[in-house]
């Protein structure tokens, strides 16, 4: 079972890196590589989208390969992350709308917040059940 989980972890890591790489290509490619060529830009975005779908499928398989305690730990971490992301994300957006912060509330901040929250929630949960 643990060997199976390791294989799924590696596959998920592979698709995640691939998704990040294609996202970087789709973001910077139009400006620095192919000079705003629309067909290439569309192709790069499509490739990134397909990679994203493959990453989600790999994540689902990774989840299903976990044992019941691991699944509980991850599910609780996801619940905390979802709740905090919605609440903090909307508050952050309000700060931007009411001009209480001097910079724009970019989606990148939310993605970063989600990643950090999920990692922290996982670490705390793992410790709780250790």
């Amino acid at each position: 079972m643990m060997k199976n989980l390791k294989q799924h972890t590696l596959k998920l890591a592979g698709w995640t890196w691939s998704w990040v790489a294609t996202l970087a290509l789709a973001t910077f490619g139009p400006k620095f590589i192919w000079d705003e060529h629309q067909v290439l830009t569309t192709l790069a975005i499509a490739v990134n989208l397909v990679n994203g779908v493959m990453m989600i499928i790999a994540n689902r398989r990774y989840f299903n390969a976990m044992d019941e305690l691991q699944r509980k730990i991850h599910t609780e971490a996801l619940a905390i992350t979802l709740g905090l992301s919605v609440i903090v994300g909307l508050s952050f957006s309000l700060l931007d709308q009411t001009n209480l912060i001097s910079f724009n509330a970019e989606i990148g901040f939310l993605v970063g917040f989600i990643g950090i929250t999920y990692m922290l929630a996982l670490l705390i949960n793992r410790k709780r059940y250790a």
């Binding site: 019941e68 691991q70 059940y129």
Partner: peptide, 24 residues
Amino acid sequence: KAVEVSRQTINAIEKGKFDPSLVL
């Protein structure tokens, strides 16, 4: 390994921190 879970799961059950599923 005998019941196809992680060692952490057995440890958590023994310590009473986690209640196993009916299958386990």
